[in-house]
């Protein structure tokens, strides 16, 4: 099978490398400046009034309008509801997607069954489908199910992802040794037990990375929620932001205020999961 990837050396706790010099930090600061700039900008511009977008140099110094503009965001759209919905959608999707992908990934990597390779190729191929164009049939399907304008319509199709299965299969392949699976079976562990007690701890860092990316992608997903949800009943952060952007006169400070407060929960989730990734690697998930 051409697509079956060879297992790599499995992770082990890493001893300290040599300390990084000033040059490394200087580089990082440069990269950081480029990365942070638009975020900084979307915090700074809302502190001013709308005409700041027209200033010839980028506006870099804060003004005094931030809270006023954030207040306007909450006055214009139901941003609390949007935040709540986005939290529900993103966390449900993340938990389910990572769990289901781990199950399937583990099966593809470590369990023998008939048709395994063919089925895995199917997964890889499905990852290549441009899902954009499935939108209208999918919308009709949601209509049949009566799910239009409900959060289900966004959550359920996102519960699984071919990328995620691909990713977790790779993770299991690398991080879960066959011997460990066999040993656990000898100890009388069921397949589910092996998955839960052996595989999952071993792939925790990779699962955390996947969780992070899934959460980000779901949080930022825009096209499908816009189409299938009702922005007045079930807004998400992204559709609420797009409502802000729908005036005759584009209200830049309003849009950017929304963008700025919309990204905060994402940063929190990131920092939480980032710890998890490091911890996972450091404690050496695979014993023995």
């Amino acid at each position: 099978m051409a697509l079956a990837l060879r297992p790599a050396p499995r992770p082990r706790p890493r001893p300290r490398t040599e300390r990084s010099g000033a040059l490394v930090y200087a580089t990082l600061v440069g990269v950081m400046a480029a990365s942070l700039f638009p975020l900084y900008y979307s915090f700074v511009l809302p502190t001013r009034d709308n005409s700041a977008i027209g200033d010839s140099a980028l506006t870099l110094t804060p003004g005094g309008n931030l809270f006023h503009n954030i207040q306007r965001v909450y006055d214009t759209v139901d941003f609390w509801l949007a935040l709540r919905n986005s939290m529900i959608i993103s966390s449900t999707v993340t938990v389910c997607c990572v769990f289901l992908a781990s199950l399937a990934g583990f099966a593809f990597a470590k369990l023998p069954f008939r048709g395994r390779n063919a089925l895995f190729v199917t997964v890889v191929i499905t990852a290549m489908l441009p899902t954009q164009l499935g939108m209208i049939p999918l919308y009709m399907l949601m209509g049949e199910l009566g799910w239009i304008a409900t959060l289900k319509a966004v959550i359920v199709p996102a519960l699984v992802s071919a990328f995620a299965v691909f990713w977790m299969r790779q993770a299991c392949d690398e991080a879960v040794p066959y011997e460990l699976v066999e040993a656990a079976r000898v100890d009388g562990c069921s397949t589910l037990g092996i998955f839960w007690h052996v595989a999952m701890p071993a792939v925790r860092p990779q699962a955390a990375v996947l969780a992070m990316f899934t959460f980000m992608a779901t949080w930022n997903d825009f096209m499908w929620p816009l189409i299938v949800l009702d922005p007045s009943v079930t807004p998400t952060v992204q559709t609420a932001l797009s409502s802000l952007a729908s005036g005759y006169a584009l209200d830049y400070t309003l849009i950017l205020s929304g963008a700025a407060i919309g990204v905060l929960p994402l940063l929190v989730v990131f920092l939480l999961l980032s710890k998890q990734i490091v911890a996972g690697v450091m404690q050496g998930a695979v014993k023995g």
Binding site: Y25, M32, S35, N220, F222, A259
Partner: peptide, 25 residues
């Protein structure tokens, strides 16, 4: 080996999470 590694990591992924509207402006 970096001090404040979580900060640097969060930093590099920021461009990906910031709203496209802000990016386009």
């Amino acid at each position: 080996k970096l001090s404040g590694s979580a900060f640097w990591r969060a930093g590099v992924v920021l461009p990906h999470v910031i709203s496209v509207v802000a990016v386009s402006l």
